[in-house]
Amino acid sequence: MWNIYCSNCGLKVDSEDLFCSGCGKELKYKPDIEEYENCISTFGELGFTKKVNCRDKGKNSILAYCPKNILTIGLISVFGCLLIFCSTFVLVSDLYFCGNSSDTHNKLLEERNIQICERIATEYYGSHTYSEDDIYDCDNMAQDVWNMLKAKGIDAKIAVGNFEPGTQSKIEEGKIVLKNMNYGSPGEIKPYNYSYQDSGLLNSSTIDSLTHAWILAEVSPGSWLAIECTGGYVVYSEENEDYYRGLTFNNPKNYRSFLDLYGDWKMETLDYENERLYCNKLADTYKNANYSEQVALKSSVEIAEVKLQEKKQRFQKTDSELKALLQYG
């Protein structure tokens, strides 16, 4: 209930009185301002809007309350919960499928690249002729196919090994050259050991035994498929493991550099060996000569030893370069 006071003399009066009992002035009912402001403050902190009717037919004032933006707040809360739920679901889904997405992508990539390799192999064979007289042989054809694969965005290596692929291609024999999905799979590359274990020098017998060149295409990360360029077909690891062993080169330029460098290595090896034999023979002659003959031979021995060291250093340098090329392709 509101406190009522006379506006003229300040005497507290009853809410039903029409005139002040102290001064006789006609009364006009107004609620206590302090209580009114307190009411506003209290309900404002609670988040409500208010309607105040300070006078209602001479009776106490009535407060009507209505919640502020209750519907809006509720909708925002529901929307927020839905947003959090959806975000959490997407995040969990991504985490769940993350481990499988890479494998699925690699599998699809592998199948696509295998089809490209098969098509390139058969089409190339249909427009090129293999010659066994070194006019246009397997390494020339491998370099061509490497370039065709590169144009399709497939990484490949030129491989060389010491086996014979066969005298007739699958196409000429009427065999299936396109992949049977359950027949075979690509494989990993197993390189040759091309150095002597004791000295670390290049083992020329390994290089001299190489008889054939072909292509290894990377159809998916770390997975390679052999292409027999002279026959126009692909070879899976289950069919012939020899295609997945050998020396490999990243591009035709490195392969040609290997051929040139190996030619230099062969000549320098021979030159160094001949100089070593000459020095040994000269040293034996000097050792068995008398004093006067040794005096005459001393200059020749010294010159031969200097030449031997120069040829040895040249040979060792070429040997290191060749092994580095073989190691990194």
Score class of each variant (00 low, 15 high):
235 V>F: 04
235 V>I: 15
236 Y>V: 03
236 Y>C: 05
236 Y>P: 01
237 S>L: 01
237 S>P: 01
237 S>I: 11
238 E>M: 00
238 E>F: 02
238 E>S: 10
239 E>L: 06
239 E>M: 11
240 N>L: 06
240 N>F: 06
240 N>K: 10
241 E>K: 12
242 D>G: 05
242 D>W: 08
244 Y>M: 09
244 Y>Q: 11
244 Y>V: 08
245 R>N: 15
245 R>T: 14
246 G>C: 06
246 G>F: 05
247 L>G: 06
247 L>D: 11
247 L>I: 15
248 T>R: 02
249 F>K: 09
249 F>S: 10
249 F>R: 05
250 N>K: 00
250 N>A: 09
250 N>Q: 06
251 N>F: 03
252 P>Y: 07
254 N>T: 12
254 N>M: 14
254 N>V: 02
255 Y>T: 05
255 Y>D: 06
255 Y>G: 07
255 Y>W: 14
255 Y>P: 04
256 R>E: 12
256 R>C: 07
256 R>I: 13
257 S>L: 13
257 S>H: 09
258 F>G: 09
258 F>Q: 12
259 L>F: 00
260 D>C: 05
260 D>T: 15
262 Y>R: 12
263 G>E: 07
263 G>D: 13
264 D>S: 13
265 W>S: 03
265 W>K: 02
265 W>V: 02
267 M>E: 15
267 M>S: 12
268 E>S: 13
268 E>F: 13
269 T>P: 01
269 T>V: 02
270 L>G: 05
270 L>I: 03
271 D>Y: 04
271 D>H: 06
271 D>L: 14
272 Y>D: 03
272 Y>W: 10
272 Y>F: 11
273 E>C: 04
274 N>P: 02
274 N>S: 11
275 E>Y: 07
276 R>L: 14
276 R>G: 05
276 R>V: 06
276 R>H: 11
277 L>Q: 14
277 L>G: 05
278 Y>D: 13
278 Y>T: 10
278 Y>G: 10
279 C>N: 07
279 C>W: 03
280 N>P: 00
280 N>L: 09
280 N>T: 04
281 K>R: 10
281 K>P: 08
281 K>N: 15
281 K>I: 10
282 L>Y: 12
282 L>M: 15
283 A>L: 10
283 A>Q: 10
283 A>F: 02
284 D>C: 05
284 D>K: 11
284 D>T: 08
285 T>D: 12
285 T>L: 12
285 T>N: 08
285 T>A: 05
286 Y>F: 15
286 Y>C: 06
287 K>A: 09
287 K>H: 01
287 K>D: 14
288 N>Q: 11
288 N>S: 15
288 N>H: 06
288 N>G: 04
289 A>Q: 07
289 A>G: 01
290 N>K: 05
290 N>Y: 07
290 N>F: 01
290 N>W: 12
292 S>G: 00
292 S>V: 03
293 E>R: 09
293 E>F: 00
294 Q>K: 14
295 V>Y: 03
295 V>I: 14
296 A>I: 13
296 A>P: 01
297 L>V: 11
299 S>K: 10
300 S>D: 15
300 S>P: 04
300 S>R: 12
301 V>W: 01
301 V>A: 04
301 V>R: 03
301 V>F: 02
301 V>P: 01
301 V>Y: 01
302 E>Y: 03
302 E>V: 07
303 I>P: 00
304 A>P: 05
304 A>S: 15
